[in-house]
């Protein structure tokens, strides 16, 4: 049940992405020159080349390209939402997300040394692909029928935990990159550049206050944040269910903080946002690791054993 709800939420995010592609700005050449081309900055030549190639393609045919982008993403959203087409759409979304991650996001700037989880690293597209795999319908062979947690579907529970730990340890490592713990790094990430352009006043104030609290304490903040992220990474391995659940709750709080304070909701206020950024996806993945209580996990099996042969639920 929880997995289905998370799949529907993932479908909603894909649909939202598709609808955002219908903004007038997306049909102009500026989408290619201002939004896509920026992903090439600081990347190795082969990544930059891929981004530049896609930028040229979109700039040459902005209306056709954007119409296709919008239709594909809307179709993915509706396909994931509908039970009959869910598997096919999830599979297609992995392929599409991989393409967007390379050609549109420059691998989330992971190879540039500038990637910052606070501003969306490792990139929303990578998390879309990951979410599709983790929320795949069905149960892995050899897993408990009830599933230990929703993400233990296509992957076994152990592998799913490894994916979680790799993701959050990766975020912790990115937080400690020199560029992200340098003096003024947090203020620059949260309020610098075009981050606050177009925002309502109340929201800019909301971002400014925590950003200025970090001034002069960037290294300490980065260390504390990395420690929190490492705790989240370790939580699913905890033998105590309460600790695992606390880890899920902490992951959701961190994701929300990233989204509100660092990602500015994906910067939608100026009509140039392509997605709501990585915060909602991190928050979506967290409940997928919510362990079922032992009573709930054994209840279906007990009910099935007690049911007379041939009877249906």
């Amino acid at each position: 049940m929880l997995r289905e709800r998370l799949q529907t939420a993932l479908a909603g995010l894909w649909l939202l992405d598709g609808l955002l592609q219908l903004q007038p700005y997306m049909f102009t050449e500026n989408f290619a020159h201002q939004t896509l081309s920026a992903a090439a900055d600081g990347n190795p030549a082969w990544v930059a080349h891929a981004v530049t190639w896609s930028t040229g393609l979109v700039a040459g045919h902005p209306v056709v390209a954007d119409t296709c982008f919008a239709l594909v993403q809307i179709a993915l959203g509706l396909g994931i939402a509908h039970p009959r087409t869910r598997r096919a759409a999830l599979g297609a979304s992995v392929v599409w997300a991989g393409g967007v991650w390379l050609f549109g996001e420059g691998l989330g700037a992971l190879l540039s040394g500038q990637a910052n989880p606070l501003t969306g690293a490792p990139g929303a597209a990578a998390l879309y692909g990951l979410a599709a795999i983790l929320l795949w319908p069905g149960t892995a062979p050899g897993s408990a029928p009830s599933g230990e947690f929703p993400a233990a579907g296509l992957l076994r529970a152990r592998h799913a935990r490894m994916v979680w730990s790799t993701l959050w340890l990766g975020l912790a490592a990115l937080t400690l990159l020199p560029a992200n713990r340098a003096p003024g790094a947090f203020v620059a990430a949260m309020t610098g550049g075009m981050m606050t352009v177009g925002e309502p006043q109340w929201y800019t104030a909301l971002q400014d206050h925590p950003a200025h609290l970090t001034l002069g304490h960037d290294l300490a903040v980065a260390l504390v944040l990395a420690a929190l992220l490492a705790l989240v990474a370790a939580a699913p391995w905890a033998p105590d269910l309460r600790i695992a659940r606390a880890g899920v709750a902490l992951a959701m709080i961190v994701a929300l903080a990233y989204w509100v304070c660092g990602e500015a909701f994906g910067m939608p206020f100026t009509g140039m946002a392509t997605d709501p950024n990585s915060g909602p996806l991190l928050a979506l993945l967290a409940p997928a690791y919510l362990p079922a209580s032992p009573e709930l996990a054994t209840a279906p099996a007990t009910a099935a054993a007690a049911r007379p042969e041939g009877a249906t639920a």
């Binding site: 479908a11 909603g12 649909l15 959203g77 509908h82």
Partner: peptide, 10 residues
């Protein structure tokens, strides 16, 4: 509206 639409489709 986006999430309403996917809920209807679901």
């Amino acid at each position: 509206m986006a999430f309403y639409a996917v809920c209807v489709v679901a």
